[in-house]
Design a protein around this nucleic acid. Structure first.
Lengths: 120, 120
DNA sequence: GTAAGTAGTAACCTTTAGGTTAGTAAATGA
DNA sequence: TCATTTACTAACCTAAAGGTTACTACTTAC
């Protein structure tokens, strides 16, 4: 385990893991991405879709998503002004992570439920 | 999008996602799992392996991992008492999540670096 | 005339994960 | 003999993520 190459590799994997968690590990980040995927493109629409999120938090999540290249903010200057948030292709790169997390989460929940039933 | 079945499915996926993030989303959780995978089984050994983790935090992470069925705590009553933490097979179910996160993190970092280089 | 919707921001507060320091008690090493 | 190692725990503190409330200025609907 302690030869140079594999230790280096291991450190890189950990770094990558932490980078990923930093970007998508927020409480609301993935939910906002899912809402956008689901076709909700406007601020209040997204907020209504995601139960419990506040305007302040949604605003900051959207800014982070923009900075990270997941989302484009489009402003239509009209009457009234309409702002739309559009998922960029880069968001699709998360697909594997998302589905791995979802299927693990489902599996884990079933396990937890089985365990609880055993205790009854 | 708004028919009953797919909305229900969507809500379940989100729930699963949140469950997963709740279990593995802590700052140190995945790193502790990796250290255990790497063959570090004893408390101080793990702590030395993971740069920056405190005894208090390691202790609580290990307790959570035990509760979630990832880890078994084994006590050898001898002189001195030796405690060993052993990864259970259940931890292997995380493999897909881990590798998806690592490869996404690597890809994302490269993208960020490229972007920074463009700016120079 | 007033309520509600548009997309947010400002100021403030709370919660909690995590960090810091110190200490246990017995054993080994220098 | 003094420091170090073992596996932690207790008490305390901090930072930051997130929550709450109120407000903007304009428009449409009732």
């Amino acid at each position: 385990m302690e030869n140079g190459i594999s230790a280096e590799k291991c450190r890189n994997s950990i770094k990558a893991l932490e980078d990923a968690m930093y970007v998508i590990g927020g409480k609301w980040t993935l939910r906002v991405i899912i809402a956008l995927k689901d076709g909700h493109t406007r601020f209040n629409d997204i907020q209504r879709t995601i139960d419990g999120i506040s305007a302040k938090v949604l605003s900051s999540v959207l800014k982070d998503l923009e900075e990270n290249g997941f989302v484009k903010r489009k402003v239509d200057i009209g009457v009234p002004i309409v702002v739309e948030y559009e998922l960029l292709p880069y968001a699709e790169t998360l697909q594997e992570v998302l589905s791995a997390l979802v299927s693990w989460g489902e599996m884990h929940r079933e396990k937890v439920i089985r365990k609880q039933e055993e205790l009854v």
